[in-house]
Nucleic acid binder design. Sequence first.
DNA 1: TTTGTTTTTTAGTCTATACTAAAAATATAT
DNA 2: ATATATTTTTAGTATAGACTAAAAAACAAA
Lengths: 216, 216
Amino acid sequence: MTPNKEDFIKAIYELGGEEEVVSNKSLVQRLSISAASVTDMNTRLLKEDLITHIPYQGVKLTEKGLRIANQLKRKHRIWEVFLAEKLGYDWNEVHADADLLEHASSDLLIERLNVFLEEPTFDPHGGVIPNKDGTIPEIKSTPLIECEVGEHFKIKEVDDQQDFLEYLLQKQVSLGKEYKLVASEPYDGPLTLESLSGEQTIIGHKAAHKILVEKV
Amino acid sequence: MTPNKEDFIKAIYELGGEEEVVSNKSLVQRLSISAASVTDMNTRLLKEDLITHIPYQGVKLTEKGLRIANQLKRKHRIWEVFLAEKLGYDWNEVHADADLLEHASSDLLIERLNVFLEEPTFDPHGGVIPNKDGTIPEIKSTPLIECEVGEHFKIKEVDDQQDFLEYLLQKQVSLGKEYKLVASEPYDGPLTLESLSGEQTIIGHKAAHKILVEKV
DNA sequence: TTTGTTTTTTAGTCTATACTAAAAATATAT
DNA sequence: ATATATTTTTAGTATAGACTAAAAAACAAA
């Protein structure tokens, strides 16, 4: 497995290759390589049983390919957590360096880094971190940021940083409380929540990443 | 610059290519590649002005090559500090992962990591960390671990971790005090110091890494 | 100094990854 | 349905990095 193959598999995954067939054209655009190079890489990955290929239609990940894609995603997201939490990267800065690091990380390194970071469940964007074996953890609760306007939910888990907890206290947001999401501004804008008693609370999008809810 | 070229330059450096001509043979052994591959790589690095080459004798780093070698060493050693201090790697475990990571580190990442680690001067083995621009910092003080038996020295700087400071206090080792190194056991064994008043103190090799001294 | 050994270089191959240009297959539109 | 446009594949080429085998140069030793 080389960095290039890894990137290719990741690209297929991100274009929906877990379920549907992904066209050469979309891979050409995603990876900025020629169509011929995509065909080349397809035949190589096919030989390794990482994808299935329907000529003139596209490729799909095999079980093996999917497992690798998820393990890469695990590495990527654990690095993102590190970059954001420990090195002070902004959420939009983490991606490029995580992309480099994920290809240079032994399993041992990732597991130790994971422990150092206290086994995070989500990356800085709120994405779920896959398990070591490439499976996706059963998430009963979803980040508030992923809720749609109009949905009702219950607060299940919040980030446990001191200042964030104080912020929530001040906003009177507490575990178990039920809300309805009444508005969510685009471009990482604020969310408006309405409690059962009709009071409205406005919180920022970063906060909405740190709050896990269960839809009711 | 590719990881292979980087490793090649590092190998030349480690074999003394800053000053003397390094033979193909030594590079063959160091990198476990064929003699023909060494010649190939030499011609490539020559084209980029990273080395000078005397046919049938060997190669030497140019100024440019040396700067790159030191910047790589900087990356390598900063990662070693991270692996040892933050992820709990043993001193002998850090090398392999640092070797991978050093090729996947943007300058930005290394500088932020350096700040996170509080700008260490030495790696876990006591090696000096080169400056960002590829120069070697002027070290007035040397780690105690690098002293030879019989030398006299003065304590200049010690690691400032709470428990280590308590340990030193208990051993009555303090800044400015003068000692003579009277014994140093091999295989990371303990060091025996003798103060001016003739008292002997025995400290472990790890502690000797954390103590900087000036020879007198 | 002549012979034998070691080291380096050259020549030719191989694989991974890219490319362009052209051919083949598929999709679209009148 | 036939012409046109798009997408995919094939064919041929390039570069980085590796190899083996053989030639050339340098070194060592009797």
